Simulated scan of single mutants.
Amino acid sequence: MTSIAVIPGDGIGPEVTDQAVRTLDVLGFGLVFDVLDHVNADTYLKTGTALSDADFDRIAASGAALLGAVGDARADTAYARGVLLRLRFALDLYVNYRPARLMHDRFSPLRDASRRPIDCVVIRENTEGLYTGIGGRLRPSTSQEVAIDSEISTRHGVTRILDFAFSVARRSVCMVDKSNAVRHGGALWQDCWALARGRRPDVQTSHEYVDAAVMKLVHDPTAFDVIVTNNSYGDILSDLTAELAGGLGTAASANINGATGFGLFEPVHGTAPDLVGTGTADPIGAVLSAALLLERLGHDDGATAVRAAVDAVVAAGQVTPDLGGHLSTNDVGAAIRARL
Rank of each mutant, 00 (worst) to 15 (best):
108 S>I: 04
119 D>L: 02
308 A>V: 02
119 D>S: 12
296 R>C: 03
107 F>G: 05
19 Q>Y: 03
163 D>L: 07
137 R>I: 15
330 N>D: 14
157 G>P: 07
47 T>E: 08
269 H>Q: 15
284 I>V: 15
83 V>A: 07
53 D>G: 09
320 T>L: 12
315 A>W: 06
195 L>F: 00
116 R>H: 04
215 M>W: 09
305 A>Q: 14
196 A>W: 11
159 T>V: 01
125 E>G: 11
65 A>K: 01
320 T>Q: 10
57 D>S: 15
144 Q>K: 13
56 F>E: 02
167 S>M: 07
294 L>G: 02
224 F>M: 04
302 G>C: 09
307 R>W: 01
100 A>E: 05
179 S>C: 09
151 E>S: 14
84 L>Q: 03
227 I>L: 14
209 Y>I: 13
124 R>S: 12
56 F>I: 06
180 N>L: 02
326 H>C: 08
65 A>T: 12
274 D>S: 12
50 A>W: 03
140 P>F: 12
145 E>V: 02
250 T>K: 01
266 E>H: 05
214 V>Y: 03
117 P>V: 12
286 A>L: 11
157 G>A: 13
289 S>C: 07
203 V>A: 06
244 L>H: 07
120 C>I: 08
130 L>E: 14
87 L>S: 11
287 V>W: 02
286 A>N: 07
31 L>N: 02
288 L>P: 00
114 S>E: 14
151 E>G: 14
205 T>N: 11
294 L>I: 08
